[in-house]
């Protein structure tokens, strides 16, 4: 047993100290608890999200991963009965401080949802909406260039270049999701949150989105919630496993999927639950 109890420098275990890696923490959650009325949905979660990395949140249904994700850009504020305690800091600043404007926060921490939800407007208008309401551009040509750049970075420009004024909802599911990503990128956020972005898409569209995530991570910090462990294994560098509202284990993706520390994690990823 002595061999296995040696602390491996690459292994990270939770409960005691924080991360030992040298990567910077873009978002840091400390002792976060979330209550929906009486229901304790997130229990004392402490987690770091590193810069320019993809962090995957996995876990069975109802484990709280989506709830936690929505805390990161204060989308839970829209739910009346929701109460959040603890601190979540973005670059060191607590985002739940009273002086923080949640509307402005969401320009820094963008979100892509499970079901693609483009506005029922033209493709151009979809992407231009964000920069327009935040006054990010000062002329029509600047706005156009922002829209085209965002569409290109989302890998959609070639497919829609000649029909920018067609309705956003006339696109296929995968294209709609990329449009939503382009829309999120257009306001130049620092973090992109993705809530099961591929669950409504076919495998080819999924692969395109995963490729996109690979490219985007060089410029953005990405947090992705996914039901598919294979997807988490493919796209992320760090994986956090949630169960019944608690963070069970967080570590490098390779370590989690080859040799997880916690048996609950192992049980989930090998399909031994239930």
């Amino acid at each position: 047993m002595s061999l296995s109890s040696k602390k491996d420098a690459q292994r990270v275990s939770l409960g005691d100290s924080l991360l030992v890696e040298t990567a910077c923490a873009k978002l840091a959650a400390r002792n976060v608890n979330v209550f929906y009325g009486e229901k304790h949905a997130i229990k004392d979660v402490t987690l770091d999200i590193n810069c320019n990395e993809v962090t995957a949140l996995i876990g069975p249904s109802g484990c709280g991963k989506s709830t936690f994700l929505r805390c990161l850009n204060r989308m839970n504020d829209t739910i009346d009965t929701c109460r959040v305690t603890g601190t979540i800091t973005l670059d060191g600043e607590n985002i739940y401080a009273s002086k923080v404007d949640s509307v402005y926060l969401r320009t820094r921490v963008g979100m892509v949802f499970q079901k693609p939800n483009p506005f029922p407007k033209s493709i151009f208008e979809n992407v231009a909406y964000g920069p327009r309401i935040h006054g990010l551009t000062s002329s029509r040509s600047e706005l156009e260039s922002v829209v085209l750049t965002s569409l290109e970075r989302a890998g959609l420009l070639e497919e829609v270049r000649d029909r920018l004024h067609a309705s956003g909802i006339s696109l296929s599911g995968g294209q709609q999701q990329r449009l939503c990503i382009a829309r999120a990128i257009a306001v130049s956020p620092e973090v992109i949150l993705m809530d099961e972005p591929c669950s409504a898409l076919d495998p080819i569209a999924t692969a395109k989105i995963e490729e996109l995530i690979d490219e985007l991570q060089h410029n953005f910090t990405i947090v992705i919630v996914t039901h598919s462990m294979q997807q988490a294994a493919r796209v992320s560098q760090r994986t956090a496993f949630f169960h019944l509202g608690e963070l069970v284990e967080c570590g490098g993706t390779e370590q989690i999927f080859t040799n997880p520390v916690n048996r609950l994690t192992q049980g989930y990823i090998t399909g031994r639950f239930g």
């Binding site: 850009n73 989308m75 829209t78 509307v103 402005y104 926060l105 969401r106 320009t107 963008g110 979100m111 892509v112 949802f113 079901k115 939800n117 483009p118 506005f119 029922p120 909406y129 964000g130 309401i133 935040h134 939503c180 829309r183 999120a184 257009a186 306001v187």
Partner: peptide, 27 residues
């Protein structure tokens, strides 16, 4: 009007008033 439209607007930093006036009410 589906919740997804409102969330989409809020998600890119629109305020509640903007999401209602620009998206929900026209639909």
């Amino acid at each position: 009007v589906p919740l997804s439209i409102r969330e989409a607007a809020l998600g890119i930093g629109a305020s509640k008033m903007q999401s209602i006036l620009h998206h929900v009410l026209p639909l």
